[in-house]
Simulated scan of single mutants.
Amino acid sequence: MAGHNKWSQIKRKKGANDKKRSAIISKHLRAITAAVRSGGSDDPSGNLALKNAIAAAKSDTVPVDNINNAIKRAAGGADSGQDFKEVTYEGYGPGGTAIFIEALTDNVNRTVADVRAVFNKRGGSLGNSGSVAWQFEKKGVILLPDASEAAQEAAIEYGAEDLQVSEDGLEITTDPTELYAVQDGLASAGFTTENASLSRIPSNTVAVSSEDAGKLLRIVDALEELDDVQNVFTNAEWPDDLDLG
Rank of each mutant, 00 (worst) to 15 (best):
I24L: 09
I24P: 00
I24D: 04
I24S: 05
K27Q: 11
L29Y: 02
L29A: 06
R30A: 10
R30L: 06
I32C: 10
T33E: 13
T33A: 12
T33F: 08
A34E: 13
A34H: 14
A35R: 10
V36L: 08
V36T: 09
R37H: 03
S38G: 08
G39S: 10
G40N: 09
S41W: 01
D42P: 14
D42C: 11
D43S: 11
D43Y: 04
S45K: 12
N47W: 04
L48Q: 14
A49C: 05
A49S: 12
L50V: 06
K51D: 06
K51L: 13
K51R: 12
A53Y: 07
I54T: 08
I54L: 03
I54S: 03
A55F: 02
A55Q: 14
A56G: 15
A56S: 15
K58T: 02
K58G: 12
S59D: 14
D60G: 01
T61D: 12
V62T: 15
V62N: 00
V62A: 00
D65R: 12
N66I: 01
N68P: 00
A70I: 02
R73D: 07
A75Q: 13
A75P: 10
G76V: 05
G77P: 10
A78N: 13
D79C: 01
S80D: 11
S80L: 14
G81K: 13
G81T: 10
Q82S: 15
Q82P: 04
Q82R: 13
D83A: 11
D83F: 04
D83P: 02
F84G: 06
K85V: 09
V87N: 04
T88S: 11
Y89R: 14
Y89W: 09
Y89T: 07
E90W: 01
E90V: 04
E90K: 07
G91S: 11
G91I: 04
Y92W: 04
Y92D: 04
G93C: 09
G93L: 03
G93R: 08
G93T: 01
G96Q: 06
A98F: 01
A98E: 01
A98P: 02
F100S: 07
F100L: 13
I101S: 10
I101N: 10
I101Y: 01
A103K: 08
A103V: 06
L104E: 12
L104K: 13
L104M: 12
T105Q: 06
T105D: 07
D106N: 14
N107E: 11
N107D: 15
V108C: 00
T111H: 02
T111E: 05
D114G: 07
V115W: 03
V115Q: 10
A117G: 09
V118T: 04
V118A: 03
V118K: 01
F119I: 07
F119W: 06
F119R: 08
F119N: 10
N120M: 03
R122Q: 14
R122S: 10
G123A: 09
L126H: 03
G127E: 04
G127W: 00
G127K: 05
N128K: 12
S129R: 09
G130A: 11
S131G: 13
V132H: 05
V132A: 07
A133S: 14
A133P: 05
A133V: 02
A133W: 00
Q135H: 04
E137P: 02
K139V: 10
G140A: 07
G140K: 08
V141F: 09
V141R: 15
V141Y: 03
V141M: 15
I142F: 09
L143S: 12
P145H: 03
A147C: 10
S148L: 09
S148V: 09
A150C: 05
A154I: 08
A154D: 13
